[in-house]
């Protein structure tokens, strides 16, 4: 393990100091400007590891390319948005979805292959749901794509279970004080998708039109769907 590996610690400590100094010298608007010396060192180490794995015959670089391409182009919140839009227009599907998310989505075939353990939780006029993983970064990849940086970062992971209304305020979102806030901490292989409430003024809209209103954050519970007519 790490503490016993001196070679590792030497490198890590240097990184740590660079990252810390870089972080301290940045204001909040520039938190993605990484320290360049740290970045290039990381890049070199990542390349070295891939070369070793390839030379040892463990991985084919083209297969790594294909994985990356799939995450960049095939999976994303559009998958979840289609499921939500269908639930808004098809009461039988919605009921099946809430009873067994994986099974119901499986019947759509074309959307995404979600595995066995997806749980869909419904926002109602009396309850707002929010999903977090305090221990790491568990997230319904197949429905929403790879999680955003903030979902995996310390501020969200630490505060969502204790001060969810404060977290929502960071997103510019406010939930009435008499509504229950239910936070789902994803501590196992179950994955949670929030089914937001259908926006008013969308009567008669098609599934395709409705799907355009469904944001990623509305399916995590840190946002609401777009309002008809509002800029997207």
């Amino acid at each position: 393990m790490f503490p016993g590996t001196t070679a590792h610690r030497r490198v890590s400590t240097a990184n740590d100091q660079n990252a810390y100094l870089a972080a301290m010298s940045q204001d909040h608007d520039h938190h993605h400007d990484h320290d360049h010396s740290e970045l290039s060192e990381t890049e070199l180490r990542v390349r070295a590891l891939e070369t070793v794995l390839t030379e040892k015959g463990y991985v084919e670089p083209a297969a790594l390319d294909a994985i990356i391409q799939a995450y960049e182009t095939k999976i994303g919140p559009h998958n979840g948005a289609r499921v939500v839009a269908k639930a808004w227009t098809d009461p039988a599907f919605k009921q099946a979805l809430l009873e067994d998310g994986s099974k119901a989505i499986g019947t759509l075939g074309h959307v995404s292959r979600v595995g066995d353990h997806l749980v869909v939780v419904e926002n109602t006029p009396t309850r707002h749901n929010m999903v977090v993983c305090t221990l790491c970064s568990c997230y319904p990849w197949e429905m929403l794509g790879l999680p955003p940086v903030w979902y995996k970062a310390s501020p969200y992971r630490s505060r969502a279970v204790k001060d969810p209304r404060g977290v929502l305020a960071d997103f510019g979102v406010s939930v009435p004080k008499d509504i229950e806030i239910r936070v789902w901490d994803s501590t196992a292989e179950t994955r949670f998708l929030v089914l937001p409430m259908r926006p008013a003024g969308t009567e008669g809209w098609s599934e395709e039109q409705l799907a355009e209103l469904v944001t990623r954050d509305s399916m995590i519970g840190t946002g609401f769907p777009r309002t008809p007519g509002a800029p997207s």
Binding site: A153, S154, P155
Partner: peptide, 10 residues
């Protein structure tokens, strides 16, 4: 835990 600051959506 406290002290990690605000959530910063990008």
């Amino acid at each position: 835990m406290d002290g990690f600051g605000k959530v910063e959506p990008e």
